[in-house]
Amino acid sequence: MTTKKFMMVNRKAPYGTVYALESLEVVLIAAAFEQDVSLAFLDDGVYQLKKGHQTKGIEMKGFEKTYGALEDYDVTKLYVDQESMAARGLTADDLCVPVEVMSRAELGKMMEEQDVVLSF
């Protein structure tokens, strides 16, 4: 199978819309087909990784735990925009999985290196 470099660019908060969950599903599918997958989190997308989701009250399936399975899928390239975290009062310590924090310019360079970029 040909391996391509996929990047999912996540810019939406979780639960309010379905984008975050859809992105995660696409990540798992691409990884199941042994593609080279990375994830970028910008704008409200950084909220997806905020730890401590308790979704019982809104009666939706929580998917914070699923980010923990990404390592099993060999998905270890998670990039987070520093500026987006700062605007939201977040630091890397607030996130549920280890990530690489970088600037928007650096993220832009990462996007240039991809074969496929999917924006959510």
Partner: peptide, 22 residues
């Protein structure tokens, strides 16, 4: 709305002056 804060993992960092409701 409390349940929405909890779902997003931010119930413990609500600013002062906001009243939580269910």
């Amino acid at each position: 709305l409390g349940p929405d804060l909890e779902a997003r993992g931010i119930a413990d960092r609500v600013m002062d002056g906001v009243t939580l409701v269910d």
